[in-house]
């Protein structure tokens, strides 16, 4: 059993499902769930239920949230303190950033956005060439650092007793970098890259206000809403919603494409989704040759009906 640290992400006092999946990726190892600068006590039971024998609350004398350098240094201190052989996290915006900082500090190998991890053999699998190939990488170092693509590993409970420990990291801020502000996105929107289900509207959506129809459906699905580049370029949706080569790479359990033709650049961003459904009025649309289930029809008929039946 290798000592494995898992960086836990928490939102509204709840452990994100993606973090539970990361714990499952380390099943069979001695799992230390690491909570950085947040209240670990409220999530202790959940973390123990999913296999953490130790729940480490990492704090420092200064305010960790003011600098990404402080956060990564605190994490590095924990790796040294507990002698982790492996440290896993989510390939979210935060996880990707912190792990890259950590890898640079520790001078250890990092593989971002993995879809499979073999801790014993130090082998991981990840996408290469914008989703066209999978690469198996052998990792060479004393600590294996990996971020895991959201939704690629289904969480499975593995209850343990779970002991809460406090770790105060001794870190000093060199003061080169400071987070001065966080701009909220308005309503609490589900992050595209982490959403388990995504419903996307392409050029066929025809107007920004028609995304309401997809939002209503998304609400029932527990989904995030995406857009194609054609829809973003036409001004129907902001770039933060774009899926594809020049937008976000997503890999949900279910991807529903509404009025999207199926260009390679769109597929580059969502190809590894588990199930892909396409709704398109053109029975010859290229997307039907690359998805799992197809409905030939007008999205303005099909989507409201789908919302109703969910």
């Amino acid at each position: 059993m290798a000592k494995t640290g898992i960086l836990i992400e928490i939102e509204n006092n709840t452990v994100k499902d993606t973090s539970l999946g990361v714990m499952t990726a380390a099943a069979g190892q001695e799992i230390y769930a690491l909570v950085l600068g947040q209240d670990a006590a409220v999530v202790k039971d959940k973390l123990a239920e999913y296999g953490a024998s130790h729940i480490v609350s990492i704090t420092a004398s200064g305010d960790l949230s003011s600098s990404p350098d402080l956060q990564s240094q605190a994490l590095a201190a924990a790796v040294t303190e507990y002698n982790f052989e492996t440290l896993l996290g989510t390939a979210s915006a935060t996880g990707r950033d912190l792990f890259a900082r950590l890898a640079a500090i520790l001078d250890q190998p990092l593989v971002s956005d993995c879809v499979q991890v073999n801790i014993a053999e130090k082998k991981v699998r990840k996408s290469h060439f914008s989703g066209k190939t999978f690469a198996t990488l052998k990792v060479n170092g004393s600590v294996l650092l990996c971020t895991i693509r959201p939704n690629s590993i289904e969480p499975v409970a593995a209850p343990t007793a779970g002991e809460l420990i406090e770790f105060v990291a001794d870190v000093a801020d060199p003061g080169l970098i400071k987070i001065v502000e966080t701009k909220k996105a308005g309503a609490d929107k589900l992050d595209l890259t982490e959403a388990p289900v995504i419903i996307t509207g392409g050029r066929a959506i025809k107007a920004a206000e028609n995304y309401k129809m997809l939002e209503d459906c998304a609400q029932k699905l527990g989904a995030a809403v995406g857009a194609s580049r054609a829809a973003v370029d036409a001004g129907y949706a902001p770039h933060s919603m774009q899926v594809g080569q020049t937008g976000k790479t997503v890999s949900p359990k279910l991807y529903i494409a509404c009025g999207v033709s199926g260009a390679v650049q769109h597929f580059a961003g969502m190809k590894t989704s588990k199930v892909i459904v396409a709704i398109n009025e053109d029975k010859d649309a290229p997307i039907f040759s690359k998805c799992d289930y197809g409905i030939v029809g007008d999205i303005f008929d099909v989507v409201p009906l789908l919302t109703e039946k969910l």
């Binding site: 250890q108 590894t272 040759s289």
Partner: peptide, 24 residues
């Protein structure tokens, strides 16, 4: 290097959708 590519393989392509039939 700290990482070495052992193997590259194509991501499996989907071979066409199951089309749903009947009324909407």
């Amino acid at each position: 290097g700290k990482t070495m590519i052992e193997k590259l393989e194509p991501v499996p392509e989907r071979s066409g959708a199951t089309m749903l039939e009947g009324s909407v």
